[in-house]
Nucleic acid binder design. Structure first.
Length: 665
RNA sequence: GCCGAGAUGGCGGAAUCGGUAGACGCAGCGGAUUCAAAAUCCGCCGCCGCAAGGCGUGAGGGUUCGAGUCCCUCUCUCGGCACCA
């Protein structure tokens, strides 16, 4: 690209007057005058101009939580410096700003302060906008978007109906955290040590119907296109690659007969070469086989009920104690025909893969630990020259598929991993009991939320016509703004004036969907809408082609969004490309360059209460004493002059968690 | 538990290829200037030691003439783990 000519703007007289070189810098005067000048001249206004090269500088939009924090200031300063630098180089710069305005904190504030979420959110937006303006960022405020405004979310609903009609959004059961006291679904964040954060009740897993976006249909392209993103940090690309988690393996079946009916239990494995070492299979508590076995086994029924306790967060499931119980049922080994006992495992999830796993204790570390705990057989079926297998102690080579060959596996003895997988897959295929399969760790994206402050899902449930998308002419489905939030149940589900409607197809009385969408949906396309925020006839228009051509030039935001937000945004860009909106040039990837900033940290101070819990103290309330070399030696609370403990350098969220009164030492 | 990143003075951080560890800045200390202060300028500033010297890049091993840098093991911290945003 040819280097563009620099452009200079005349200063107006007010700015010129204060900007003359002075002894001291008076920010109140100089910045006010400079900002007034920029305002009058529309200095930050971005206008499409095909004759000039564009530079689209995007910062992740903030959640309007109340006030800007240091992380915002840092993030938007980086963006502003890049935007101004490129403007000085002569680029036609777009630096927009908006508000990721739906979400849980507004509902929490509503419960606490008895203020409707909409009112709270709009007040925060007004305040934070004024803070950004005082910071003097070169933002084109004419393009501001707030995701909670109907002008924005109507197009999200419009897109939903298109994707629903294409089958890219579908309905299936999903597992959620259920608070049995508050009778409400909880976010993972609201489950603390397996209990509801407000009620304190033990949380249960519950399966409910939800809408899912078929992101797995794009798994292959989302993975392959990571290679094109050479303007992204390597670590972020690697994290996304591992998250998508492409693996090749074998989907195979264990046949069984139950109640006089023949059936098959399907599992997926990347280690088909160890198939002859299977000594049991484990199914999820919700698996039909588990339910069937529990019918005449009260102890098993009690265990299954216990498995349903606790939340659904993967980190909790992965760290909890592995427990299991035999069902008393057996399935047949697909090759040897030997009986294989079926166990229920609390670590097997119905929503992952087939809801069942085959266990090879000899060559999988977790299966090994489980087998030892419950006295299940451990069989060696892989050998490495010079190494001795000992069924009482796990050794790393047991699970390493890059070394060793099959043993104790009959005709497969002597084959290495790849050859054994091929041979076993061929034999399974011949029997109709399996085939090679590519599998992704990535799961379809559940977007239904049983919450009020979000974008209503534009579906009408009709007894005769089923799930009917709301026709374009009836969009947007408006979210009522004056509601009372109690923290129990979903407010929309208690509002007949919202959900009572008629079927768009047959006209009979019908019920409107009361779930709202995951707020990640809004943040998956806002960067495209900045190009045409005023269009009330279409979601996007040709202005997107100008600003987003070749990708948004620079995206800046926190590393915490390295996977979910950035993957969803990439997914939406491809979805929108494939919808082929009129006048829109195809765009494969939204962000050409990505800059992920770290977390802002600061010194922390705390006291320990009688119960041993740390109570974090605002650094502004602390006096720090130092020695003659400037090293901190002690700290006291200004209010009582008594010592507080120095907690080191940490992220701001520590002090945010401060609750209750500060204990005396 | 799994994936990713990291650990260097009181603090933020340099050291691009394996070659003088701590550039630059902040804080601190000393001095100049000043009636005094602020501001400014000059100097000192890893730890122990009067010094000579010794020690030192999260811990422990290893490779090398030489390791902050490469290899192995471990510890801790941070981000994410699909309903926080």
């Amino acid at each position: 690209m040819a280097r563009p000519k620099p452009c200079h703007e005349p200063l107006n007289s007010a700015f010129a007057k204060v900007s003359n070189m002075q002894e001291k810098y008076h920010p109140a005067d100089i910045e006010r005058a400079a900002q007034a000048h920029w305002q009058q001249t529309g200095a930050a206004r971005a206008v499409e101009d095909p004759s000039r090269p564009k530079y689209y500088c995007l910062s992740m939009f903030p959640y309007p939580s109340g006030k800007l924090h240091m992380g915002h200031v840092r993030n938007y300063t980086i963006g502003d410096v890049l935007a101004r630098f490129h403007k000085m180089l002569g680029f036609n710069v777009l630096q927009p700003m908006g508000w990721d305005a739906f979400g849980m904190p507004a509902e929490n504030a509503a419960i606490q302060n008895k203020v409707p979420p909409a009112k709270w959110t709009y007040a925060n937006i007004d305040y934070m906008r004024s803070q950004l303006q005082r910071l003097g960022f070169a933002i084109d405020w004419e393009r501001e978007v707030a995701t909670c405004s109907p002008a924005y979310y109507r197009w999200e609903q419009w897109l939903f109906t298109r994707l629903f009609e294409k089958g890219l959004i579908y309905k299936k059961l999903g597992t959620v955290n259920w608070d049995p006291v508050d009778q409400t679904v909880l976010a993972n964040e609201q489950v603390i040590d397996g209990r509801g954060w407000r009620s304190g009740a033990l949380v249960e897993k519950r399966e409910i119907p939800m809408y899912y976006m078929k992101i797995t249909a794009y798994a292959e392209e989302l993975l392959a296109d990571l290679d094109k993103l050479d303007g992204w940090p390597e670590q972020v690309r690697l994290m996304q690659k591992n998250w998508i988690g492409k693996s090749t393996g074998v989907r195979l079946a264990f046949p069984y007969e139950l109640d006089g009916k023949a059936d098959k239990l399907w599992v997926f494995t990347t280690r088909a070469d160890t198939l002859m070492g299977v000594t049991f299979v484990a199914v999820a508590a919700e698996h039909p086989l588990a339910a069937r076995a529990a019918q005449d086994n009260p102890a098993l029924a009690a265990f299954i009920a216990e498995c349903k306790k606790g939340g659904v967060a993967e980190a909790d499931l992965a760290t909890m104690e592995k427990k299991g119980m035999p069902t008393g049922l057996c399935v047949q080994h697909p090759l040897s025909g030997a009986p294989i006992p079926v166990w229920v495992g609390n670590y097997v999830l119905m929503s992952y893969g087939e809801g069942a796993v085959m266990a090879v204790p000899g060559h999988d570390e977790r299966d090994f630990a489980f087998a030892q705990q419950y006295g299940l057989p451990i069989r060696q079926v892989i050998a490495v020259p010079g190494e001795t297998f000992d069924a009482t102690v796990w050794q790393p080579w047991y699970g390493d598929k890059t070394v060793g060959v099959c043993v104790n596996s009959g005709k497969y003895d002597g084959l290495d991993h790849a050859a054994a997988v091929d041979a076993i897959a061929a034999d399974l295929a011949a029997k109709g009991l399996g085939e090679k399969k590519t599998q992704f760790r990535l799961r379809d994206w559940g977007i239904s939320r049983q919450r009020y402050w979000g974008c209503p899902i534009p579906i009408v449930h009709c007894a005769d016509c089923g799930d009917v998308p709301v026709p374009d002419a009836q969009l947007p489905v408006l979210l009522p703004e004056n509601v009372e939030i109690t923290g129990t149940g979903s407010p929309l589900a208690r509002m007949p004036e919202f959900f009572e409607t008629t079927c768009p197809k047959c006209g009979k009385p019908a019920k409107r969907e009361t779930d709202t969408m995951d707020t990640f949906v809004e943040s998956s396309w806002y960067f495209l809408r900045y190009a045409c925020p005023d269009n009330d006839q279409a979601m996007l228009d040709a202005r997107v082609n100008y600003w987003c051509q070749g990708g948004i030039d620079q995206y800046i935001g926190g590393i915490e969004h390295a996977i979910l937000h950035l993957l969803y945004a990439r997914f939406f860009t491809k979805l929108i490309r494939d919808l082929g909106l009129p006048g829109m040039a195809p765009l494969d990837e939204p962000f050409k360059r990505l800059l992920t900033q770290g977390m802002v940290v600061a010194p922390t101070f705390y006291r320990e209460g009688a119960d041993g819990k740390k109570c974090w103290i605002n650094p502004a309330d602390v006096d720090v004493s130092t020695d003659e070399r400037g090293r901190p030696r002690g700290a006291t609370l200004k209010a009582d002059g008594l010592p507080v403990r120095i907690g080191g350098i940490e992220t701001g969220c520590r002090s945010r968690r401060t609750t209750g009164s500060i204990p005396r030492p």
